[in-house]
């Protein structure tokens, strides 16, 4: 065989294997970053994970256009968070057969929130957190259940890779379990520690890890107005918090003024959208290190 035809044969072989490989790859759309991360970890090279929400936008309040919804309609699998996460789903037409509600297993454990103040931050538009608390993955035992639902859905669609999915899931389960145990251990150091949170997104975190936390409605990038400071002072009279948990990097002025009142700041990013650096696990590790600061005090 001459070198030319050998190169041609190799190229053909690669092309055939590429076509065969890509033909089997499932296209999986997700509504938030944690689900995209879990799906990628479990599905590996056998799936093509698409998380279409632009950086800097809260996926819970993202407004997809017709093209985005059409792409969701054509996906092989659509991973939903459940707990009424991503309001746009209620107004969009999606293929029921290909939808996976990843939190269906713990539907009875959803937390209802009665907060009704509408507010705006980022490009997501005015919104309210009333209804059902939806950052389910911040309870890492629930995150494991969500990952398990993804694994089961992938196994159903690609049973030939069941072993791979089981192996990948076990690895992810261990890591999530480790995060869970770390927070448990940290919080157990001081059960009386109290916190204030800048946004009502930590309901499942506080329930799982028994954290004493009250919530205000502040935006990290916006300096609170006088009324917000006053209501904070009022809250602190009954809730002696020394730490404030922010969902994003807070404004310097807010941090300084809080410091002056004897309140420190820490960032616990829920990670609904993809982090600028690292991945879900590294982001949660950073969050836990931040939390640890409060307990080291």
């Amino acid at each position: 065989m001459n070198p030319g035809s050998r190169v041609l044969n190799i190229a053909l072989l690669l092309l055939v294997s590429f076509i065969a490989g890509s033909a089997e790859r499932l296209t999986v759309y997700t509504v938030n970053y944690p689900l995209a991360y879990f799906a990628q970890r479990i599905g590996g090279e056998h799936i093509n994970v698409v998380f279409p929400v632009p950086a800097g936008v809260d996926p819970a309040f993202w407004q997809p256009d017709v093209r985005d919804i059409t792409a969701f309609q054509q996906a092989d699998l659509v991973l939903l968070n459940g707990a009424r996460y991503a309001k746009w789903i209620e107004r969009a037409s999606l293929p029921r057969r290909r939808l996976v509600d990843t939190s269906a297993a713990f539907r009875d454990a959803y937390i209802n929130v009665s907060e009704t103040v509408a507010h705006q931050h980022g490009p997501g538009g005015v919104h309210s957190h009333a209804g059902t608390a939806f950052t389910t993955w911040l309870d890492f035992s629930q995150a494991i259940e969500q990952a398990r639902a993804i694994k089961l859905a992938l196994e159903k669609m690609l049973p030939q890779y069941s072993d791979v999915f089981t192996r990948n899931f076990s690895s992810l389960e261990r890591e999530l379990g480790s995060l869970d145990q770390r927070i448990m251990a940290i919080v157990s150091q001081d059960r009386d520690k109290v916190f204030v949170a800048s946004h009502p997104v930590y309901q499942y975190l506080t329930r799982r890890y028994n954290i004493n936390l009250e919530t205000v409605m502040w935006e990290p990038e916006v300096v609170p107005d006088q009324a917000q400071w006053q209501s904070m002072q009022q809250l602190l009279r009954s809730h002696k918090a020394k730490w404030m948990i922010w969902e994003g990097e807070p404004h310097d002025q807010s941090v300084k003024r809080l410091n002056a009142s004897g309140i420190n700041s820490l960032v616990f990013d829920p990670g609904a959208n993809a982090p600028e650096k690292g991945d879900f696990i590294s982001l949660m590790n950073r969050n836990i290190m931040e939390l640890e600061k409060a307990y080291r005090e």
Partner: peptide, 24 residues
Amino acid sequence: TSIDYFDFRGLAIADGRMFTLLGE
């Protein structure tokens, strides 16, 4: 119905696109 109906019946769009939002 759900858009699964169209796959099930093998119905294709001749002109335009599938409904995506409420009211379409």
